[in-house]
Amino acid sequence: MPAISTSAKTSLDQRLTQHAKEHWPQLVTVHARYHGQFAYVEGRLTNGGRLPLMRLRYGGSATH
């Protein structure tokens, strides 16, 4: 499986940020780090803490 493209990373970051604003008011930001075909997503809480949220596997397209 190919590594995550730059455009897919940008798309994911934008979608996560928008979703967090609408559904997770307790989060200040959402941050994704990338390794190979995976994106590891964590939320930053208002008190400064970090909350691991999910690991996503790249399926070859930003929408899948």
Rank of each mutant, 00 (worst) to 15 (best):
V41M: 09
M54F: 01
L45F: 00
G60M: 02
L27G: 00
R44P: 00
M54R: 13
T46M: 10
H19T: 11
A32Y: 01
L45H: 05
T10Q: 15
A62L: 02
A32L: 04
L16K: 08
R33W: 07
Y34W: 14
S5C: 05
S7L: 10
G59P: 06
T63M: 03
F38P: 02
S61H: 15
G48P: 08
L27A: 02
S5P: 07
R33M: 07
M54Y: 02
S11A: 15
S11V: 05
I4P: 01
I4R: 01
E22R: 14
P52R: 06
L45T: 07
W24Q: 11
E42L: 06
G43M: 03
A3E: 09
Q37N: 12
M1N: 10
R33D: 10
A20G: 06
Y40P: 02
T6V: 12
H23T: 14
Q18M: 09
R15D: 11
T29H: 11
L53E: 03
G60Q: 09
A8E: 03
R50V: 09
T10F: 06
Y34M: 05
L27I: 01
Q14T: 12
L53K: 06
G60W: 08
R55C: 09
H31Y: 07
F38D: 13
P2H: 08
R33A: 10
Q37S: 12
T29P: 03
S5H: 09
A8H: 10
V41N: 10
P25H: 07
L51V: 01
G48Y: 04
H35T: 09
A8Y: 00
V41L: 07
A39G: 03
Q26L: 01
M1H: 12
L53I: 15
L27W: 00
G48K: 06
